[in-house]
Design a protein around this nucleic acid. Sequence first.
DNA 1: TTTGTTTATGACTACGTAGTCATTTTTTTG
DNA 2: CAAAAAAATGACTACGTAGTCATAAACAAA
Lengths: 333, 333
Amino acid sequence: MNKNYNSKDVAKIAGVSQSTVSRVFAGKINVSEKKRKKILAAAEQLDYKPNAHARSLITKKTKMIGMVMRNIHNPFYSAVLEIFHDRLSALGYHLIFINSENDEIQEEEINQLLEYQVKGVIITDALLSSSASQKFKRYGIAVVLFNRYIKDLDSSAVYCDNYMAAKQIATYLVESGHKTFAFISGPSNTSTTIDRLKGFKEVLDERNIKKLTTYSGEYTYESGYKAAQELIAQNTDLDCIFCGNDIIALGAMDGLRVGGISIPEEVSVVGFDNIRMAGWPSFALTTWEQPVEEMIDCAVDLITNEMNDDKAVQQVIMKKGRLVIRNSVKKRS
Amino acid sequence: MNKNYNSKDVAKIAGVSQSTVSRVFAGKINVSEKKRKKILAAAEQLDYKPNAHARSLITKKTKMIGMVMRNIHNPFYSAVLEIFHDRLSALGYHLIFINSENDEIQEEEINQLLEYQVKGVIITDALLSSSASQKFKRYGIAVVLFNRYIKDLDSSAVYCDNYMAAKQIATYLVESGHKTFAFISGPSNTSTTIDRLKGFKEVLDERNIKKLTTYSGEYTYESGYKAAQELIAQNTDLDCIFCGNDIIALGAMDGLRVGGISIPEEVSVVGFDNIRMAGWPSFALTTWEQPVEEMIDCAVDLITNEMNDDKAVQQVIMKKGRLVIRNSVKKRS
DNA sequence: TTTGTTTATGACTACGTAGTCATTTTTTTG
DNA sequence: CAAAAAAATGACTACGTAGTCATAAACAAA
């Protein structure tokens, strides 16, 4: 049943050759207005759609982009997915969604994408081994890392200037009178964590502040919660916490509150990302806003360029962002 | 550059015919162990992967499933996406992700899926016009609605027994002494909203309780927040709110708190879904747990059956769920 | 060994499209 | 109006795979 009609069927009805039908649907090339109309009418009648697989096979091109995500639980990334989808689908691309469970994109996941001849892959919040990177390169697949970059690997990347952001946050905390610092980070092997820690530490070092406790965990609520509880247990005279991202910060806030510590009266908390929830009254989290849309537009430009131009050069692009001040930080005398 | 090797190249190196290479990669059929090894070695050497498009073209099958989602912002659905991905990718399927902005899946979105010859489509939190449904049917595409069902449309669907759930919630609220009720719902044209309202109302009617205010909005935090503020402004003697889902409930809680109303002391709040955040101490929301994993397993079974068996019959399956009691409801004397 | 049976293998073709090339039709120009 | 140029069109083939069919090899039975 349900025969799928093809360009030959359309050609027959329209009284033209298959070639002409193809011309109409491939666009551009010259077809007389009269036949074009006939063909479109015939296509309409049969509800004909060009077969994307046949098209990919012959053109060796594809309108599919691999979207590798981790941590889709994190609202930051679900927002990212949504925006990427909207931008790319407007350009006629389709997304193959892959939820990577691992720190590094896996062989198996790469193969899935290779089999579908994707010409571009966007990787968010996950790493790329150099062998994987080479593999993509060998197949001529454009790769853009989002919110991560990898040293010594010439993949394109778009990320936020975590280093400068952390410096500004640290400065803000120091200048608002905080004395004892904690940094609850995500996994310590990611560029985001490293840069944020580096910037934060540097400011404290410059001012000769030694009181910094660092706690490395995951980029999750639970991890933030647990870290906060452990910090409380250590019973230091902590007066502020810088969290590796917002979701950690929310966990930390809840951990502190449950431990009977009030925010910001006793401890200030700063996050990173500016996810929607950070603006909810229950949290009113002061945080760093990543210019998500700008970053995504940029990533989309990079990947489309690399896909359409073999000689396009890899670029690593850094965006700024800004501090969003809410009510989770208190000026201390 | 980057020539993609094909089965002929592999055949040449292994000293066999293309047919035999195909047999190895298509699986099953008889190939002598000796040649199989040679072929696999050659494939390894060239890093050969079968071209999925060519394969789809000849087999008229595809391992792709369309995943149409709306409201990916809602953590409930990002969790759903993650689980669907994990289940389906374990079965060898790949997801084409479509973020629908509309209430009803659009013509354009359907066409995208048709062009890729997907054999199955999962639709979450969106509707299906009957013309769209017929279109899918005509093309022999299996459709499963998730968390929605549509009357008089023979599409398979998996959803939670919203009617019974709402009845139990209402009963729970009544029996814990509440007198004045509000229901903040999502869009009033969805089966979830209708059924939840129906069950809730029915219990109140049975007990001859007239004090029910209903407010229909979107399934978003902002909508819940706004609704709560409006309810406050109406200055009724409200003592509990049943929310259409958790994200509305969180918004409502924040709206109430900002309005100076304490939860659960003055007003009780109940949600629906049991998203992770409902368990966070800041909210501790009493809510209905949808058996998400069970529902997804069920949807996966349905879609794989329908894809692999033309004669598989459409089914609408309802799951139960359970009330999760936390601290957003107070017993009133 | 001979015959019959099973298993392994290769030549060939179809899938539905895009694009090349040759041919026909239309338009332009002198 | 004739000749030249441009545009439109169709026949044909390639893309990389799976599967059909015929043949060859291996094996079993007698």
